[in-house]
Simulated scan of single mutants.
Amino acid sequence: MKVIKYIAEVEQLNLPSTVKKQLMTHILEPWSGDVHQAQEFWEEVSTRLILIEQSDTDHDLAEIDEELDILLCYAIANPEFVLLLNDESCPHLLALSVHTDEGSGCYVLGPMSSDTHPIRVLKEQAE
Rank of each mutant, 00 (worst) to 15 (best):
M1V: 09
K2I: 02
K5H: 12
Y6D: 11
A8C: 10
A8R: 09
V10R: 07
E11R: 13
E11F: 13
N14R: 14
N14K: 15
L15S: 05
P16K: 05
S17N: 05
T18L: 12
V19G: 03
V19P: 04
V19N: 00
L23G: 04
M24G: 08
M24L: 15
H26E: 14
H26T: 06
L28S: 01
L28P: 00
E29D: 13
P30E: 09
W31G: 02
S32A: 14
G33M: 02
G33E: 05
H36D: 15
Q37Y: 11
Q39L: 06
W42C: 02
E43A: 13
V45I: 08
V45Q: 07
S46C: 13
S46W: 14
T47L: 13
T47E: 08
L49S: 02
L49W: 00
L51A: 06
L51E: 04
L51M: 08
I52L: 10
T57A: 05
T57E: 05
H59T: 08
D60P: 05
E63H: 12
E66L: 09
E66T: 03
L68N: 03
L71R: 09
L71N: 03
L71A: 15
L72F: 00
C73V: 14
A75D: 00
A75V: 02
A77G: 04
A77K: 11
N78D: 04
N78T: 03
E80P: 01
V82N: 05
L83S: 06
L83E: 08
L84G: 06
N86S: 14
D87V: 01
S89A: 14
P91G: 05
H92V: 00
L94C: 06
A95G: 03
A95Q: 04
A95V: 02
H99E: 07
T100F: 14
T100D: 11
T100M: 08
D101P: 06
E102C: 07
E102N: 06
S104W: 13
S104T: 07
C106P: 01
G110D: 02
P111Y: 02
M112W: 09
S114H: 02
S114R: 01
T116I: 01
T116M: 06
H117K: 15
I119L: 12
I119F: 11
R120S: 11
V121L: 12
L122E: 05
K123N: 00
K123C: 06
Q125W: 10
A126N: 10
A126M: 13
A126L: 09
E127A: 15
E127T: 12
